[in-house]
């Protein structure tokens, strides 16, 4: 079966500046899906730049054994800045979902065969009280749109990742839910 036709299969590439928390939401998504019993892979771009450069990661989720963790044409893209849109938009599958952080992405996509979901993630994050939680807003939007995992699994995963830092846990939950609402309101 073509991996993209497998109903229990999803992949997504996320890209932005280093420090925007894309590696984090990628791991969180994969971890949550693992807790749901799915097979998962997470692969970062690894580079000499540790901070501030471009960062991307790809997550594959599947009900079956995962062959290739290498995805050249992802089903979905989460894009956090203009350079990442330039670098990745051409790779998105036909009919794929492009999640744009419209607070920072000012360029327009040239693709007409895809579904674009615009989320003003930085503004939404500020509204919930933590400007650094734009990543969680985007993840909320992605999960609401694709339904690849449940909200409760993501929240359980967050708890694992944050441990005792409760103040971060709550604001990240709120940011995630706000991202979900953006998609609900938009549809």
């Amino acid at each position: 079966m073509n991996p993209s036709e497998n109903p229990l299969y999803a992949n997504v590439t996320m890209a932005g500046f280093g420090g925007q928390g894309l590696m984090f939401i990628g791991k969180l998504l994969a971890y949550s899906a693992m807790k749901a019993g799915m097979n998962v892979t997470w692969i970062p771009s690894y580079g000499p730049e540790m901070r501030g450069g471009t960062a991307n990661c790809t997550v594959v989720l599947s009900g079956r054994e995962i062959g290739s963790p290498v995805i050249t044409s992802p089903q979905a893209l989460i894009i956090m800045n203009n350079p990442s849109l330039d670098a990745f938009e051409a790779r998105l599958q036909n009919n794929g979902h492009l999640f744009l952080n419209s607070s920072l992405v000012t360029n327009e996509t040239r693709r007409e065969d895809i579904k674009v979901v615009r989320i003003p993630a930085n503004d939404v994050a500020l509204e919930v009280g933590e400007k650094r939680a734009a990543n969680m807003v985007m993840l909320g939007a992605y999960v609401e749109q694709t339904k690849v995992v449940t909200k409760s699994l993501i929240f359980e995963g967050l708890k694992e990742f944050f441990g005792k830092k409760m103040e971060f846990l709550d604001v990240n939950k709120r940011a995630f839910e706000a991202g979900m609402r953006c998609v609900q309101d938009g549809s």
């Binding site: 097979n39 892979t41 997470w42 692969i43 970062p44 690894y46």
Partner: peptide
């Protein structure tokens, strides 16, 4: 290889 070293999987 580097891919295997850097990727995460359960």
């Amino acid at each position: 290889d580097g891919y295997m070293g850097q990727m995460m999987e359960p």
